[in-house]
C-alpha cells in the first residue's frame, strides 16, 4: 500500500467516525447559554477598593502574582545553581540569557545604555515568557463553571493568560513608552529630541511639509502604545480562543458533538504551536522592540 493510500484510508476512517457520531448524537441545536468570551471575564474574588480605584483580586491578579513568583523563584534558583559544567536546564537558560544580552540588548544599545537597561529588558522577557507559559497550564480558576465535589463548589480547571488581558500588556507598554521617551529627552534635550522624530533628508523641504511629516511621526509614536500592547494581547488571546474552540468550545456552541472529533486533535497542534513558538516569540518581540525603541530614541539620527 502506498503512503498516499494509507493517508486516504486514515482520513476516510476519520471522516466516517465523525459521520457516525453525528448520526448517533445528532445536533442539539445552537447553544445560546455558553459564552466563550466569558472564559476571559474577570470576576472579583476579593473586593478591594482604595480611593476610588478597584484593586479587587481576580483571576488576572492571581496569574500576574504567579508569574512574578515563578519568575523570581526559578531564576534565583537557576542563578544559585550555576555550575561550570552546565546541565540541560542551565544550558537552555544560558542560551536565552545570551540572546537577551547580545541580540536584544547589545545589538540595539550602546554599552552604557545596555548595562543600564539589561535588567529591565531581561525582566520584561522572562516576565512575559513565564506569564505566557503559566497561561498554558490548566489551573483551577474557572469560577463561572464550578464543579461540585462532595457538595463543595470547586472551580474547574481552565486556561487563562495574564497577557491575554489588555491591561497587562498595556501597562508594560506604558512603562516602556515613558522610559524610552524620557531616555530620548535626557539624551538630546526636549526640542532636539522631537527634532529627531523627523527622518533624515528633509532639510530642503518647506515648513508645511516638514510639519505634516512631524505630525505623522508623532502619531506613529503614540500608535506604538497600541501596536506594542495589542500585538502581545491579541496573539495570546487569539491562541487561547483557538485552544478553547478546538478543545471543544466550538462543538458545544454548535451543539455538534461530531465537530469535536475534527477539532480536538487540532487543539493539540495549536497547544504545541502556542507553547513552543508563540509564548517565546511574543516575549522576544516585546523585549526586542523595547530595546529598538530605546536605541532609536538615543541614536543621533532617526
Amino acid at each position: 500500500m502506498s503512503t498516499k493510500k494509507k493517508l486516504l484510508l486514515v482520513f476516510g476512517g476519520y471522516a466516517l467516525l465523525m459521520i457516525a457520531i453525528f448520526l448517533i448524537f445528532g445536533s442539539d441545536g445552537k447553544n445560546e447559554e455558553f459564552q466563550p468570551q466569558n472564559e476571559f471575564k474577570l470576576d472579583p474574588w476579593v473586593d478591594i477598593h482604595l480611593g476610588g480605584i478597584d484593586l479587587s483580586i481576580n483571576k488576572a491578579v492571581l496569574y500576574i502574582v504567579l508569574a512574578s513568583v515563578i519568575t523570581c523563584v526559578s531564576m534565583v534558583m537557576i542563578a544559585n545553581r550555576m555550575k561550570a559544567k552546565p546541565n540541560k536546564t542551565q544550558m537552555a537558560v544560558e542560551v536565552i540569557y545570551d540572546v537577551i544580552r547580545k541580540q536584544i540588548t547589545n545589538d540595539n544599545l550602546n554599552d552604557k545604555l545596555a548595562a543600564k537597561y539589561f535588567p529591565f529588558l531581561a525582566t520584561l522577557f522572562f516576565f512575559i515568557l513565564f506569564s505566557n507559559f503559566i497561561g498554558l497550564i490548566p489551573l483551577p480558576t474557572n469560577t463561572e463553571h464550578p464543579v461540585h465535589i462532595f457538595g463543595m463548589e470547586v472551580p474547574s480547571f481552565a486556561l487563562y493568560a495574564a497577557t491575554a488581558n489588555i491591561s497587562i500588556p498595556l501597562v508594560l507598554t506604558l512603562v516602556v513608552w515613558v522610559l524610552y521617551q524620557a531616555e530620548g529627552i535626557r539624551h538630546h534635550g526636549f526640542f532636539k529630541y522631537l527634532g529627531t522624530w523627523l527622518p533624515a533628508g528633509l532639510e530642503d523641504m518647506n515648513v508645511f511639509g516638514r510639519a505634516a511629516i512631524f505630525l505623522i511621526e508623532a502619531i506613529s509614536q503614540f500608535v506604538r502604545l497600541i501596536s506594542l500592547s495589542v500585538r502581545l494581547f491579541a496573539n495570546i488571546l487569539a491562541g487561547h480562543l483557538l485552544l478553547l474552540f478546538m478543545g471543544g468550545g466550538l462543538a458545544v456552541l454548535l451543539g455538534l458533538g461530531a465537530l469535536g472529533v475534527l477539532t480536538f486533535p487540532m487543539a493539540f497542534a495549536f497547544y504545541i504551536f502556542e507553547i513552543v513558538i508563540v509564548a517565546g516569540l511574543q516575549a522576544f518581540i516585546f523585549s526586542i522592540l523595547t530595546a529598538i525603541y530605546l536605541g532609536e530614541a538615543t541614536s543621533e539620527s532617526h
Binding site: 479587587s56 500576574i64 512574578s68 501597562v171
Partner: peptide, 18 residues
C-alpha cells in the same frame, strides 16, 4: 477594556520581579 486596578497590580508585580 483596560482596568486600572489590574494595571497597578501588574506594575507592582513587575517592579518587584525586576
Amino acid at each position: 477594556q483596560p482596568g486600572i486596578g489590574l494595571m497597578i497590580w501588574t506594575l507592582v508585580a513587575f517592579v518587584i520581579t525586576m
